[in-house]
């Protein structure tokens, strides 16, 4: 069965949103609708330690098929701070298709 990229990205955004709820609770959903453009630092005000927790849960969720730490190592610090849900979802999608 083939899945179109748009559907796959939406599913990944849903996964990321679910993981965010695990890490920081669901209160943020009252303020923010998580879309591809949502940024972790500015829009969601994710603290660094929460980012680490999210990364760990993503590694677990995708059973090692997504190398999150290698992805981050390729980014500058200011790029990490400005990271959007869409950029992360894109990396997950590319990793799963590899």
């Amino acid at each position: 069965m083939s899945i179109t990229p748009a559907v796959e990205l939406d599913a990944i955004v849903d996964d990321i949103t679910a993981i965010l709820v695990e890490v920081i609770g669901d209160e943020f959903l009252l303020d923010v609708e998580v879309t591809m453009a949502t940024t972790f630092s500015h829009d969601l005000e994710l603290e660094s330690i929460e980012f680490v927790a999210m990364a760990e849960k993503l590694q677990e969720r995708y059973a090692g098929r997504v190398d999150f730490t290698a992805f981050l190592a390729g980014l500058e610090i200011d790029e990490i701070l400005a990271l959007s849900v869409g950029q992360l979802a894109g990396h997950v999608a590319r990793s799963l298709q590899a």
């Binding site: 603290e47 660094s48 330690i49 680490v52 730490t69 290698a70 981050l72 190592a73 610090i77 990490i80």
Partner: peptide, 16 residues
């Protein structure tokens, strides 16, 4: 401070 200040800045690049 906590481990996250060193996670992205030094530890992850060194691990890579």
């Amino acid at each position: 401070d906590n481990l996250s200040s060193l996670y992205y800045s030094l530890a992850n690049p060194v691990a890579q």
